[in-house]
Amino acid sequence: MNFPKITNIRVNKKELLIVVILTMIALISFFLFRISGQGAMVEIKIAQKLIGTYDLSIDQEVPILDDKGNLLMISVIKDGMIKVVSSNCPDKICIDEGSINLAGQTIVCLPNKVVIKIIGNNDETIDGVLQ
């Protein structure tokens, strides 16, 4: 077989510059979209629709049902962390993701369009207390 000859095989400086710029974009977007801090609440959404908010400090089992009432997955809140223990999706990536507990962290299950997201600690987002 006669394959075409590959001429350009080494990384040149122009390309290196593009890599550096991409890294910069990553860095800036990391600062812009970063969310941190210990979470207190967890938010569960299916296809962007909020189906519930749960307190991370209360150990509980949260079944996630779709709008027809079919069980999609089961998540468990324990010791201030949430994890998915079972899911009907084919890849089971959501189970592999393990426990999350920090604000901004998410467990995403693409087949079920489920997003489990830790939202900021309540005390942190409160601007004032009415006595």
Partner: peptide
């Protein structure tokens, strides 16, 4: 489909 805030959170990691 899942909201831009989730996607943007992963953007730096993606890059």
């Amino acid at each position: 489909t899942l909201g831009w805030s989730i996607a943007l959170f992963y953007l730096p990691l993606i890059i």
